[in-house]
Design a protein around this nucleic acid. Structure first.
Lengths: 177, 177
DNA sequence: ATATATTTACCGAACGTTCGGTTATTAACA
DNA sequence: TGTTAATAACCGAACGTTCGGTAAATATAT
């Protein structure tokens, strides 16, 4: 159910997704959604965002910090999950979709937290590669930029390879040099 | 007038911007907009996109290819215009705002062309730095990714410095190493 | 120069549609 | 039977758009 919502929100944004569409995606009727989400559309969007965050924590973050693996393995596996998250570059980022809308909006805090979370995750892997805290954070920020930017440029240029190539390059950022 | 539209579209997206807001931004009434833009909202959005493209061509592209300047000067000045275009990282990118909406939308072709245009512009400066065509294009794509990504991450982290730092780093990509 | 015709710019009001959200009723199930 | 889930019907408000008509500006003709 939340996955169906996510697909809509990612591709159409918050304002661009109507309750009619959200209802159709679930098979339920519009009114029935208010039984599950009494606070309406905003609650649905937040639920989706939290759900994605949980997936990211479970898969990406837990992988990047899994001390049973070597740093190289953590990074490689973590990036695989990211590739999956964005469907090889064919799926827009939910954070983008929600941050681009309505000027100062309701999701700002959640988005801010989520981004910090991503930075933390990659700072962690940087530390595993024996980088200093400051360098690790610098690289982590660049990884975020690369992911977000390549998603946009991939889509804008109709070329998912740009996203794939970027993920490969991220691996090099840590392992080579 | 188009600048007022641009501000709205950039911050609220296409669907998120209403005709009432567009009218208010001009001082005209809603109905009057249809005198200037008979095809309505879509025509307004396209006019804004073309207007921005013209600005970019006039300032960014012309600077990057100005043979009266050294490659270093072209790059430095071009980046200055980009900094201005995005108001030091405080203004979202119109291409992002339009590409993120409505699934497969009406602007896809225009967005695709605009992105190619940016890649061309930076491929050009790469060639001025004596890079091969393929390496120049590779670097140009990365510049696009850096700009688009840093705009998103800057905003997401409430830290415009991320955008500024990225522009500085782009200069290094060409001038150092 | 003056009066007339034509075009341009603008606006109030209303259009049909869709928006997010609510209420009253029915169906399902314990 | 009593509680929960789902729905049909409906709401006011806002959406993008259209239209009839007015005022201002421009062109034409005398």
């Amino acid at each position: 159910m939340l996955n169906g919502f996510a697909k809509l929100f990612r591709e159409k944004g918050y304002e661009g997704t109507s309750l009619a569409e959200l209802a159709e995606a679930t098979g339920l009727k519009k009114a029935s959604l208010y039984h599950r989400f009494p606070k309406g559309k905003e609650e649905m969007a937040k639920a989706v965002l939290l759900n994605v965050n949980n997936w990211v924590e479970e898969h990406v973050f837990n992988t990047l910090t899994n001390e049973l693996l070597t740093p190289e393995e953590r990074l490689k596996n973590g990036l695989q999950y990211i590739k999956k998250l964005y469907d090889n570059g064919n799926t827009p980022c939910l954070l983008q979709a929600f941050s681009m809308q309505s000027g100062i909006n309701i999701f700002n805090q959640l988005i801010n937290d989520s981004m910090s979370y991503w930075v933390d995750a990659f700072t962690n892997i940087g530390l595993a590669f024996d980088l200093s805290q400051s360098v690790a954070k610098e690289k982590a920020t660049q990884v975020l930029i690369d992911i977000q930017g390549s998603l946009i440029v991939s889509r804008g240029c109709n070329n998912p390879n740009i996203f794939i190539d970027t993920l490969n390059k991220i691996e090099d950022i840590y392992t080579k040099k």
